[in-house]
Design a protein around this nucleic acid. Structure first.
Lengths: 102, 102
DNA sequence: TATATAAATCGATATATTTCGATATATGGA
DNA sequence: TCCATATATCGAAATATATCGATTTATATA
């Protein structure tokens, strides 16, 4: 957990929104039938919700992924992104530790 | 509490260090006798600890102050900065809420 | 194999941030 | 009042970030 990179990833309202949206699959259109059993949301759906270009969203997902805050899984042409809950909790704990303790 | 501004303020390792240092007055040289009863640390001491220019530190303290994370009090030629513990706790709660809940 | 679609990468421009030195503004003291 | 010191502000250069459209890459399918 590189705090620096994670905080930088959070330092953008759209990326924070994406993390929030990903808490609940129902923020996005229903999964295709053949993807029903997969976790995560494809870039296209995130793009539509954020209303930014495909390249921007791909970039943002890369930033979130390099920060460890999301994980991705490729299935066919699609990349499905989902929150990394453990990393998010670890980050919160680290920020709290740094800001409050010792 | 403007989350955006507060996260931006945290998105710099020196500013985060300053917030950490300010947790404990003993991270800085002792206060002058005539300042013994004042809370906070003057810009000069913070500057020495951070080893950056005076203008940079003055700027950083302004960023932290506009984000609400520190408060300042002028006494004579000196401005004493101290943590705003309540605002820091509020910020942590807001980040946690945004990242984890609902 | 040719084509369509999803996602990633590239290159560019506009804007923001970091950091500095120089200057301006308080304030306190000789 | 004049000077020294603490801080704030200004203007600039270097670097980083946001965001785009175009291109490339991977995959699926006709």
């Amino acid at each position: 957990m590189e705090l620096d990179k994670a905080i930088a990833a959070l330092n953008n309202p759209v990326r924070r929104n994406i993390l929030m949206w990903l808490k609940d699959r129902s923020n996005f259109p229903p999964a295709l039938p053949e993807h029903g059993d997969l976790e995560g949301v494809c870039v296209q759906y995130i793009r539509e919700k954020a209303n930014l270009s495909q390249s921007t969203i791909s970039n943002y997902m890369g930033v979130l992924k390099h920060a460890g805050l999301v994980a991705s899984e490729r299935h066919g042409q699609w990349t499905f992104y989902r929150r990394n809950e453990e990393a998010i909790r670890t980050l919160l704990a680290a920020i709290e530790e740094e800001l409050l303790n010792s």
